[in-house]
Design a protein around this nucleic acid. Sequence first.
DNA 1: ATTGCTGTTGCAATCGTTTGCAAGATGATT
DNA 2: AATCATCTTGCAAACGATTGCAACAGCAAT
Lengths: 343, 343
Amino acid sequence: MADSEGRTTRTTVRTITDLARLAGVSPGTVSRALAGKSLVNTQTREKIEALAREHGFRPNQMASGLRRQKTGVIGVVIPLGHDTRQQISDSFFMTLLGYLADELTTHGYDLMLRRVVPETDPDWLDRFIGSGMIDGVIVIGQSDQFERIEDVADGYRAMVVWGNHTEGQRHCVVGTDNRLGGRMAAERLIAAGATRLAFLGDTGPMEFAARFAGAQDVAARMGLSPILPLPTHLSPNRASAEIAQHLAVHGHAIDGIFAATDTLAALCLTELRAQGLAVPEDVKLVGFDDLPVARQTVPALTTVRQDIAAGARGLVDLLLRRLAGETTESFVLPPELVLRETA
Amino acid sequence: MADSEGRTTRTTVRTITDLARLAGVSPGTVSRALAGKSLVNTQTREKIEALAREHGFRPNQMASGLRRQKTGVIGVVIPLGHDTRQQISDSFFMTLLGYLADELTTHGYDLMLRRVVPETDPDWLDRFIGSGMIDGVIVIGQSDQFERIEDVADGYRAMVVWGNHTEGQRHCVVGTDNRLGGRMAAERLIAAGATRLAFLGDTGPMEFAARFAGAQDVAARMGLSPILPLPTHLSPNRASAEIAQHLAVHGHAIDGIFAATDTLAALCLTELRAQGLAVPEDVKLVGFDDLPVARQTVPALTTVRQDIAAGARGLVDLLLRRLAGETTESFVLPPELVLRETA
DNA sequence: ATTGCTGTTGCAATCGTTTGCAAGATGATT
DNA sequence: AATCATCTTGCAAACGATTGCAACAGCAAT
């Protein structure tokens, strides 16, 4: 094709109307053809498809979304605690995010990622939902926002949350049975010979609280003294110093540590060595998550496994069902103890 | 407010028109008030803002985006190689993604994440850009898609790529000087006494090829025999077996390994121990990235550091500039050798 | 009383796609 | 030849927010 000055010009076709003009049909027909509806003559459809391919045309998703009142996008939001840097780079969340991306893609959805700091933005969840940009939302981690999530759940169905399940809660959640996982960890530590236990990690977030409670159950049942909580930030740079401090104070008063995550466990292992405490001889150690790092530490980490891939599948599956109008129950995954060398 | 049956009904206000009716003004005025334009009377604005707050109203971003021809969303796309599972869960990419999320949020943009497999979807980049859903795109990793990215760059400005810089390329890239990093790694191995070097990792992807080439430079300059490439997948489950295999065959013929990433280096360390090779006595080892794992291995990993946070800042900064119409040069970050215990 | 200015507001078109409805074409049936 | 059913297609009205333009009010200056 050549314009009046003789240059070859690929007529730019941006809209469905442009394409319709080229094909000699109406925009409506083009829309139907591209959407693969059955009401279009086969020849017409093929002609339109050919033209679309030739000009690399794709219908504008904003306009389409506006008209159809759905966007094909699922929001994934990570509420961060006080410790801003904390979780977004945390292996566990990132791994889960990776699987979610896979799973959503497979089902034809795009993923919109948002990290929020509820403390400075109390309106975080409504804002995301009300933006009109997403068909549904997956919340990764309840953090300390349980109540707000509950409130929203009453009026908004297209939401699924990764986190801990509490009896009678109103929002749909997918997550590991943290309390049971905590019991497993404590049982293992005790079976390995430990009697004075500590819990490494913040007990504020619900998941961690449940893990701690589970361990506490066992300690109480076995008649041991209560488990010593050693609160610690999750960001690696702060955690190391805090762990070192904890060990300096309590290192010789304890002989079993249940770490809230493998990341903390790995750091703890380094600090234990630095302070001359042998694992598992002097101190037994159990982690949580079974991240790749658990296999690589020396000695390799005994830990409670969460099936992250299954979790991602569950989140997406439940969300899609809810989008389709079903009512869904929460989905609790069983933890699994992985025996390695630290306990 | 109460309806005829006496229930209190928060009249649902979904659109700007609803709100306008409530406020007794026209939709246009509401739009202007909420957008913070100066042409609205202060009292009117306050009244509208109060109503909006009361009813939790937010303008629909789809409609807004359509009209204004911008979405406030930046696309982030990760092209995966053959090895589908490979990178999305790779620590390096995930860490970069975390920083990107931070950085984009700070600038008021949302992040739309998409993972693609170029082999099965040759059109991946045009599709994303042409969707009309994003104002710009950040490509994480060139993978083996250099040419396609170049093609797109000619016609689309709002793109920045994480990857390797090649003389004369047309797309704007941010990344570490991989070749220099490779030289640093090889120099360190040699300084530590190694003379028969190997490169652990696939040399296909551009970044890795450059690292390998840098190491090769040094080997040639020092008159050593060529570096032995030991191609390996990145996914942890496959990598371990492949590394074991490599070491079984060549383990005693080499005394220095440059691993393409810290992840591989950490796995390699495990396999070396399993095969009874002492590090650094029998074999020296240098990694790349300086991920948290590098600090936690035993012995701790000597590695070439990439400043991921700076990279994320660079990507976002350049992209925003391009959105504003500037022409930008690529941005190459200096690598830094971090001496620990493996070399 | 007229003119001109400033500050606010409303009107209506627009962004690009989808879809209910009706109209036209075609062929089959009576 | 008239009637009817079946396919295709076009028309035009949405979806919800934005914005150029014009109108209007209020006020000051002439």
